[in-house]
Design a protein around this nucleic acid. Structure first.
Length: 461
DNA sequence: AACTAACTCAACCGCAATGTG
DNA sequence: TCACATTGCGGTTGAGTTAGT
């Protein structure tokens, strides 16, 4: 199922100022409430630069959180305090809503991890004792890499801590001291705890067993049981895991790109869909928007800003084969609808703005990516990876600046034919529900687009 | 002192299980 | 029953630190 939304970001902070989910709202006041909300958001905007991203992506697996504008990296003491206070007051859980409620610009997942691995009061800090070491070694010989289960035998220790300790200390230790076969180590286990294993039906295949053996020291000494957690047939001796052939690291290959291009050609309305063009997923957009590499890095790594709206296939650098473009599954009428919206409403009516194609012939993109004043118009298509990860997106992204050099823009007047129709339709009052089928996008009753225009009209007025 | 390789560990990522409407 | 959301887990990364040359 497809999800559609529009985002407007503050250029300097890359915070989302307006993030309008284009799904039919469930609010009792319908579109009117939506529109009001969008207008309020837009009024908060004070910079001259605006990013408008219309993204559609598969909803099969939603991202853990809205990545745009969220902080990444090391936690500060202030953040720790905020998180600790909040959890002490409200308890654990509801991680997704926690950051917002606690006033943290973090992903819920990140908050959970920070709490569990670092902030929890019952954590035991400091070096592992020899007893703890022995427990870990024994349990690992039996349980493999089920660190959370191992951690349950070591109060005050986290799975992450144990995992790190194993990888950095114990695995090497064991490697250099192989126990004779006859001297098996007694493994004392609470079977009621191991029953937890059955909770995860069949567990999951260890990624490590499928992926290449990395050269990193943390990877090379995997215990003999680690890849077969559900097969409790391990002997207590820890033996070196047999090496597996190196897999060729796959990159987002030309083939993958070609795949998407081929698929694109299946579109029913090529003329209309050409603005959602296949493109490699390196961040040409970012390069174009930001002047220096430092800016780009800070933008992407710290804020994670662009990642959402221009998300590239997760991990496709490693496993991207047989890539299909997400919009392959999108009805061409949906694309057409997007084009209508974008052409007639999101772009300045006076500008006769056209789309830039980021394909093989990326002349327009090059023009803008080198521009000093950060203007950019990009249509972007990322793809799913071979594993069916559909969190990647196809996005159509436009960047507006006040001092846009309009002479660089190629007219595309034919797309303005329906502008008036769109305008009137988009400004329908909140009782618009159900009127017209033309722009219906999905089966969930997504019909109107007032909020998008509410969010944008004031920008262009 | 300068450089580099190795190490450590907090944090991130993707995936799968589970929960929920 | 299904689709989507949430949670938890294990693998992996990379910045910071330490040890070696």
């Amino acid at each position: 199922m497809m999800k559609l939304f529009i985002q407007a970001c503050d250029y300097h902070t890359w915070r989302i100022i307006s993030n309008v989910d284009l799904k039919m709202p469930k609010a009792e006041d319908g579109w009117e409430g939506y529109r009001k909300k969008a207008q309020v958001n837009v009024k908060a905007m004070h910079t001259s630069f605006l990013v408008v991203a219309v993204t559609h992506r598969e909803m099969g697996r939603a991202p853990c959180c809205e990545k745009v504008g969220l902080k990444k990296g090391r936690w500060t003491a202030e953040e720790d305090v905020l998180l600790t206070k909040y959890i002490q007051a409200n308890g654990e859980g509801s991680w997704r809503s926690l950051p917002k409620n606690a006033g943290l610009l973090r992903c819920g997942k990140s908050c959970r991890l920070r709490w569990i691995n670092y902030l929890r009061a019952d954590l035991k800090r400091g070096n592992f004792t020899s007893q703890e070491e022995e427990v870990i070694i024994n349990l690992h010989a039996t349980l493999g890499n089920r660190w959370s289960l191992i951690a349950s035998y070591l109060p005050g220790r986290t799975d992450n801590e144990i995992k790190n300790y194993w990888n950095s200390h114990l695995s090497r230790k064991i490697h250099s001291f192989r126990r004779p076969l006859t001297q098996s180590m007694p493994v004392i286990m609470d079977l009621t705890k191991t029953a937890v294993i059955a909770k995860r039906k069949g567990g999951r295949n260890s990624k490590g067993s499928m992926k290449e053996n990395k050269s990193r020291s943390t990877q090379k000494d995997t215990g003999s049981c680690s890849n077969k957690p559900t097969e409790n047939v391990c002997v207590n001796e820890v033996v070196p895991f047999p090496s597996t052939p190196l897999l060729e690291k796959e990159t987002l290959s030309t083939t993958a790109i070609e795949d998407r291009m081929v698929l694109d050609q299946h579109g029913e309305d090529k003329e209309r869909t050409t603005h959602v063009v296949p493109s490699p997923c390196h961040d040409t957009v970012v390069e174009g928007m930001l002047g220096s590499s430092e800016e780009r890095e800070s933008l992407v790594s710290e804020e994670g800003t662009i990642e959402n709206s221009m998300q590239c296939p997760s991990g496709n650098a490693e496993k991207g084969t047989g890539i299909l473009a997400p919009h392959e599954s999108i009805d061409s009428s949906e694309i057409e609808w997007f084009n209508d919206i974008l052409d007639s409403e999101l772009l300045q009516p006076s500008g006769d703005l056209t789309f830039t194609e980021l394909g093989e012939d990326s002349g327009n993109v090059k023009t803008h990516t080198t521009a000093a004043n950060n203007e950019e118009i990009v249509s972007r298509n990322c793809s799913a990876d071979s594993g069916g990860d559909l969190s990647s997106c196809t996005s159509t992204t436009f960047y507006f600046v006040d001092d846009w050099e309009w002479e660089n823009v190629v007219p595309r007047s034919e797309l303005w034919d329906e502008k008036e129709y769109m305008c009137s339709w988009l400004w329908e009052p909140s009782d618009y529900h159900g009127k017209g089928e033309r722009h219906k996008v999905d089966d969930n009753g997504f019909e109107g687009h007032n909020p998008m225009i509410a969010a944008n009209a004031s920008l262009f007025s």
